[in-house]
Design a protein around this nucleic acid. Structure first.
Length: 514
RNA sequence: GGCCCUAUCGUCUAACGGUUAGGACAUCAGAUUUUCAAUCUGGUAAUCAGGGUUCGAUUCCCUGUAGGGUCACCA
């Protein structure tokens, strides 16, 4: 029996730093890592890169994990999200490479940092920030790569110890070999080659207890046995540094895939401060997670044919790195609105109603599992009644948040609308009053107050007129106070006979008193 | 400025040397409708420029141009 050589297990990671609200670019990076891992029966790891203690917060971390959860991107390893949807900030993790917060991995980094120092691959540098900055400015001014020139690289260990004893500030730099070519094969872009001369000796830690990004990232990718590093294009320039670090530490390098950036309207990299694209906007704005995921997947990836609508499962099935775009993609919300509307229309009315309820909190409050109270009128209403309203607006909805102003008319005592709105085309006041009186007469006589019957009865009258709108438009406005709405018959049915008549009378008064 | 990456309709993209350069969103027009939406039909709209290679370039190569990224004791 010859042991089959096992393919290396696919392991991807999303490694955000909790220093701001999660934005769309981060979600896409997470999504592609997730899809690639799942497609290959691999593991998707979530690692929190919170080495910057000043800028990282627990709040952002919590927000981040909750957002991933909302998008249904489940990680196989990483911090635990308990049933209460609260993050466990103790030392509870799933996975064998715990801890998954860099702030808790100090010992690991210290060990490797010491190794680099011992083997002379890293050294203490006592240059001041100002010195280094001035040097860079000078190099740039003469058209060269702004790098650290290596003033302290030949300091002996004894000299370094002596300076440290004197209390001089220092950092730890990696000793980059001069003038070597660092090559790597990017799964999306092909071969990329960078000369070490353009990098210089970069800082890897402030001190043994305070390692910095490139170092921690390289160490963790190795320690956590990440097979594929899939991240934004803005990390291309970090890649050769991390490769050098990995080599010096004796690790194999993972495969790299650098995603094109998601751009804002100005064609610039989406920034964490760009509030319009933060994930909160999605949740609060009434976008569905599955619609958002569908949309985000299409930003820089396509299935190779004309299909555009995909569930997460379908995306896993179809996903491949080869179909990823090389150029950046402008984030354009109109298409998301379209996709979201599509998903909204596919929802069952029960689901849709549940999704809408949070957006109606100004008007109604829950009184039991199945009932609500209208705040303004004090009336008790049932979920079924809400469903009857919402179904009228299902195909008009692009985002859940729009429901609020579409159906407020059902929850208020008085409608506020300008008199002019009632006027249909060339009608004058007396014609409007006549129109409304006709509606009033017809509706008062109706016993069976169903939309079908209301429509049938009203149409009998409407057809006598030169234009149905002469009857129906003033009625619509009287009932809704809006120029756009569901058909007035349906509105009347849900409103009920009494309120319907009341509203028509009010409209007549409005015209008369002007 | 150095280094790196990129370049097809307004936007997201398809066409792995040969197509009337396809689709979707948006937009415009029409149908339907009392309005809006939804739906259906149709239209406008793109290969950054210049050189090569080739019988033939959106596609390969070079140069230019434009855009982006990065050059932190941030990640």
């Amino acid at each position: 029996m010859t042991p089959k050589k096992e393919e290396k297990r696919i392991r991807t990671r999303y490694a955000p730093s909790p220093t701001g609200p999660l934005h769309i670019g981060g979600v896409r990076t997470a999504l592609f890592n997730y899809l690639f891992a799942k497609k290959n029966n691999g593991d998707f790891i979530l690692r929190i890169e919170d080495t910057d203690k000043e800028r990282s917060t627990k709040e952002y971390e919590q927000q981040l994990l909750k957002a991933l959860e909302w998008f249904n991107l489940k990680w196989d390893e990483g911090p635990v999200l308990s049933d209460q949807k609260e993050i466990d900030f103790g030392s509870h993790y799933i996975g064998e490479c715990a801890p998954y917060r860099q702030s808790e991995r100090g010992e690991v980094y210290k060990k490797y940092l010491q190794k680099l120092l011992d083997e002379n691959n890293a050294y203490y540098c006592f240059c001041t920030k100002e010195e280094v900055e001035a040097q860079k400015q000078y190099l740039m001014s003469i058209g060269e790569s702004p790098i650290y020139l290596g003033k302290c690289r030949s300091l002996t260990k004894e000299q370094a110890e002596e300076l440290k004893k004197q209390g001089k500030d220092c950092v730890i730099r990696f000793r980059t070999s001069e003038n070597i070519k660092i090559k790597f094969n990017d799964l999306i872009r092909g071969d990329i080659e960078i000369n070490s001369a353009t990098m210089g000796d970069f800082v890897i830690a402030k001190d043994l207890d305070t390692p910095l990004y490139n170092f921690t990232c390289a160490v963790d990718d190795a320690e956590m046995q990440i097979s594929h590093v899939i991240r934004g294009e803005d990390h291309i320039s970090n890649t050769p540094k991390q490769i050098l670090l990995l080599k010096a530490l004796g690790f194999d390098e993972p495969k790299y895939a650098h995603l094109p950036l998601i751009l804002n309207e100005q064609r610039k990299k989406l920034s964490k401060r760009d509030g319009k694209t933060s994930v909160d906007e999605y949740i609060n704005g009434g976008y569905l997670p599955e619609a958002s995921i569908n949309f985000i997947a299409l930003l820089g990836w396509n299935p190779g044919d004309n299909r555009e609508i995909f569930s997460l499962e379908e995306l896993i099935k179809e996903f491949s790195l080869e179909k990823i775009q090389k150029a950046g993609a402008v984030f354009n919300i109109e298409k998301l609105d379209w996709i979201n509307g599509l998903y909204l229309r596919k929802k069952s009315i029960k689901e849709l109603t549940n999704l809408c309820i949070p957006f109606l909190s100004d008007f109604i409050e829950k009184t039991s599992i199945e009932t609500f109270k209208i705040k303004q009128t004090g009336e008790e209403i049932s979920v079924e009644w809400l469903e009857r309203i919402i179904v009228l607006y299902q195909e008009r909805l692009k985002k859940l948040s729009e429901i609020t102003e579409m159906i407020d008319l059902f929850f208020v005592n008085d409608l506020n609308y300008p008199k002019e709105l009632i006027k249909w085309k060339e009608m004058d006041d007396s014609q409007i009053i006549q129109s409304l009186e006709t509606s009033l007469m017809v509706l008062s006589q109706i016993e069976d107050f169903s939309a079908e019957n209301i429509q049938a009865q009203l149409f009998k009258e409407a057809e006598k007129m030169e234009n149905k709108g002469n009857l129906l438009w003033p009625l619509r406005v009287a009932l809704t106070g809006k120029k756009n709405s569901a058909p007035p018959f349906q509105i009347a049915e849900v409103l009920g006979k009494e309120k319907t008549i009341q509203r028509i009378k009010k409209a007549i008064k409005l015209i008369e008193h002007e």
